[in-house]
Each structure stands twice: as C-alpha cells, then as structure tokens.
C-alpha cells in the first residue's frame, strides 16, 4: 500500500500546522511549505500527488505554483485555496488545470474531503476522509 504525497503551501504558518495532523491521519504523507520559493524548489525536486496552495502569497502566487506543478508533473492535482478578493485569479487557476478550489475560511474536513476525492481518483483507494 502506498500513501499519496501531499505538499501544502501557505504563508500563514497556522494553516500548515492545523491541516497536517488531519491529513496524516487520513494516511497521507504531508510536507508543508511557508515560503513559496522553497515550495517551487520542492516541486521541481520531487513528485507530489496533490499540491494544496494558497493563491495569494508574497512574491509568488498560486497561479505560478500551479504552472510549475503542471510543468514538472502534469498528473499532479492542485487544489487552490482562495481568498475573498481573488475570484478572478481562481477562475484563471481553474482554466489552467487546477483540480478544485476552496475558499477561506474553510473547515478542515472540507479540505480533507477534497483531498480524499482527488486521491481516490488517482488510485489511492484506501484513502478515506
């Protein structure tokens, strides 16, 4: 049995801290990045199954992350976390091949559900919410 590799990117440290445990309990391997530059390096260096990224971060935004992911590995699914004023960006993200998006503020369970669904579609059938 193998577990999906997940990368969670958000410049807000609390987001990573709180989501990590829940996702790990689901049976995922979770890496967290606060600095989007680190994240891009990680994406280039390693194949992830699911990348969860905040759309708005200093210097590098979610769209750039999405593009890098799709470049590095087109199979990787990207879930976009959006904010209030970024529906334009979110639409652009969907057009560019994002798997789904979730708006802040959200419940951890909702995100977990989304991740589980993506993992299932990718063949990780033992992943349950």
């Amino acid at each position: 049995m193998n577990s999906p590799e997940i990368l969670l990117i958000d410049d807000e440290p609390i987001v990573g801290q709180r989501l990590r445990t829940g996702l790990e309990k689901m049976g995922c391997k979770v890496e967290v990045a606060q600095d989007p530059k680190d994240a891009l390096a990680k994406i280039r260096g390693k194949r992830f199954d699911v990348v969860i990224t905040d759309i708005m971060m200093p210097e590098i935004n979610g769209i750039q992350v999405l593009e890098t992911v799709k470049e590095a590995n087109p199979d990787t699914q990207v879930i976009i976390i959006t904010g209030f004023a970024t529906s334009e960006l979110a639409r652009e993200a969907m057009e560019k091949g994002a798997y789904d998006m979730i708006a802040k503020p959200f419940k951890p369970a909702d995100l977990r559900g989304m991740v589980a669904k993506a993992a299932n579609e990718m063949g990780f059938t033992d992943i349950k919410e």
């Binding site: 807000e12 609390i14 987001v15 989501l19 503020p105 951890p108």
Partner: peptide
C-alpha cells in the same frame, strides 16, 4: 480578503 486569513486560522 486580509480578514479572511486570521478568520481562517481561527476556524482551522
């Protein structure tokens, strides 16, 4: 939008 961040943090 800015408010979304702390509210999200509280919620999580």
């Amino acid at each position: 939008h800015e408010l979304n961040n702390p509210i999200n943090n509280i919620m999580l």
